[in-house]
Design a protein around this nucleic acid. Sequence first.
DNA 1: AAGCTAAGTTTATTGCGATAAACCTTTTTT
DNA 2: AAAAAAGGTTTATCGCAATAAACTTAGCTT
Lengths: 119, 119
Amino acid sequence: MEEFKLFEAEYKFMEIIWELEPINSTELTKVCFEKLGWKKSTTYTMIRKLAGRGILKNENATVVALIKREEVQKHDSEVLLKRTFNNSLPIFLAAFLQDKKLSRQEAEEIKKMIEEATK
Amino acid sequence: MEEFKLFEAEYKFMEIIWELEPINSTELTKVCFEKLGWKKSTTYTMIRKLAGRGILKNENATVVALIKREEVQKHDSEVLLKRTFNNSLPIFLAAFLQDKKLSRQEAEEIKKMIEEATK
DNA sequence: AAGCTAAGTTTATTGCGATAAACCTTTTTT
DNA sequence: AAAAAAGGTTTATCGCAATAAACTTAGCTT
């Protein structure tokens, strides 16, 4: 559970990795400098911390993610729903949709997903 | 926009206020001590900070919220959707519903809401 | 009038996420 | 063989949210 919690900087970093993995660690320091403005040591610090938590691994200078983006997304959704909406999808939607309009296509897509998730 | 962003401690604090408002400030220090373990000065510090940001007001020792819980809920939802799901409700639902089952009643409720939010 | 309580403010301290300087070792290039 | 680049680690620093100690002032109570 808790293993999927990422702080802001960690999340931005992982987004880069999910996009580019597998990626050489030196190459990664360059990308992080360009996209995040990080110094080399900052990137390596991040690699080490996330490796220690099983979020990614760095072997032979090659960095790969050990958890999927979808797992983190799911975790984040659940945290928000639990913390803020008493774990209720209808309550969430009421808040989120307030004053928003969906296209016909989005609506159909969503209804289909709801239908599929119904026992 | 940014005015609705609450940090964790602030959020827990506001939950108490939304539940009990209007509430006398001394009474509030007692509740915060019981529920959050905060000392009196911590509660007053929090009151002052949030008052400065227009989140609540404290007049004649009576504290009331100036923003509604629903506004914060909406803000938090939008932040998550933007940050994590490319602002797409279907993508969010795909992640959240994965391996979850909805009751028939929930499903109907949700579909109705979707329908109402469709242009 | 002396003490107590309510209702705060001023000013620190703490904890931790974010960031990086400085240093080290090994491999590659010239 | 000297220099440079790759691939790191050790150890700090910084910023800021979280928390609170200590002090103040005014009203109420005995």
